[in-house]
């Protein structure tokens, strides 16, 4: 069980906001803090990691108190058993992949985990390369591996994939889900991308104006209307073409692009980039077996 109850006054460019977050989730959960930028999501991760001290509150993981303002407990980051992955990777440019991972080892750690993790993220052939000789996706894999060196209880991910292109992003999403399962982690993701949260997380906290406004499963949070049908996809409108009195929408759903007929009413209010939900009934799909 991870219990977070923390307050912190934040000073931003526009105005001061009071962050007051109360959230708890189970071990093994993959949770998301979702919200607009500037809502305080990253601050929450930093407070869990011990990189930022809450003004008041309590943070406990599996009954162990990491922070308690009344009891004056404040474990330093290195004692908190967290792995942190940042959006900009934060790798040491003057160290090879292997050295970046070794640097995270502490006295007494078994160094064989470094090779094991490099293999896990599929970078065995790149162990002696420097970050500058890697692609964005490879760099983020190194950052993920490095976050796991200390066998953390909690993996903290701060918009880890937002700098990557769509294909690489969905590939790394799969790898993240796999790592989460394989290492039995409790993972906390900060993201503003509902489709990413849908793919990865089993629980979401929606942050607005410095506090948790809503929480629940991704479908409870993002699917406003409850429809008695079976197929629901979230997509992004790429183009809108008029064809007689109807419209053809090109919609990106995952890595696929599909064309969908929309009536004038359905098209209203949509523009390029709009996020839409597509619903189809269970009776519609035709099924073709793929011969292997």
């Amino acid at each position: 069980m991870v219990e977070i109850d923390a307050s912190k006054r934040l000073h931003s460019a526009e105005d001061d906001i009071k962050l007051r977050v109360s959230a708890s989730f189970k071990r093994g959960d993959f949770v998301a803090f979702f919200g607009a930028s500037g809502a305080g999501k990253t601050t929450i991760l930093r407070m869990i990691a011990g990189l930022l001290r809450p003004d008041s509150g309590r943070i406990a993981v599996d009954g162990e108190v990491w922070f308690d303002s009344r009891e004056r407990v404040d474990l330093p980051p290195q004692k908190r058993e967290v792995g942190f992955v940042f959006q900009d990777y934060a790798l040491f440019p003057n160290m090879s992949v292997e050295e970046n991972l070794r640097f995270a080892l502490q006295k007494g750690d078994n160094p064989s985990i470094v090779d094991e993790l490099i293999e896990t993220v599929g970078l065995g052939a790149f162990a002696s390369r420097y970050p500058s000789a890697l692609s964005g996706g490879q760099r983020q894999r190194v950052a993920m591996a490095r976050a796991l060196v200390r066998r953390p209880k909690i993996l903290l991910l701060d918009e880890p994939l937002s700098a990557l292109d769509h294909t690489m992003r969905s590939k790394l999403q799969e790898e993240l889900a796999d790592i989460h399962r394989r290492f039995g982690l409790t993972t906390v993701l900060v993201s503003h991308d509902p489709s990413e949260i849908f793919r990865l997380c089993n629980y979401v906290f929606k942050i607005e104006g410095g506090s948790v406004k809503k929480e629940g499963s991704p479908s409870e949070l993002f699917v406003k209307e409850r429809i008695g049908s079976s197929f629901k996809f979230t997509g992004e409108v790429l183009s809108i073409e008029r064809c007689e009195m109807v419209y053809l929408l090109s919609v990106a759903i995952g890595t696929q692009i599909v064309k969908i007929m929309a009536t004038k009413k359905e098209r209203e209010g949509l523009k390029i980039g709009s996020r839409i939900q597509i619903v189809s009934k269970a009776f519609h799909p035709m099924i073709f077996k793929i011969e292997s």
């Binding site: 409850r226 008695g228 009934k281 269970a282």
Partner: peptide, 25 residues
């Protein structure tokens, strides 16, 4: 005719109001 899973609780209550939706085509 709909496929009803347990989460679609609104189907359970006879007398409840629903939106009836169908595509123009």
């Amino acid at each position: 005719f709909v496929m009803g899973s347990a989460q679609e609780g609104f189907l359970e209550k006879e007398g409840s109001e629903v939106w009836v939706l169908f595509k123009e085509s």
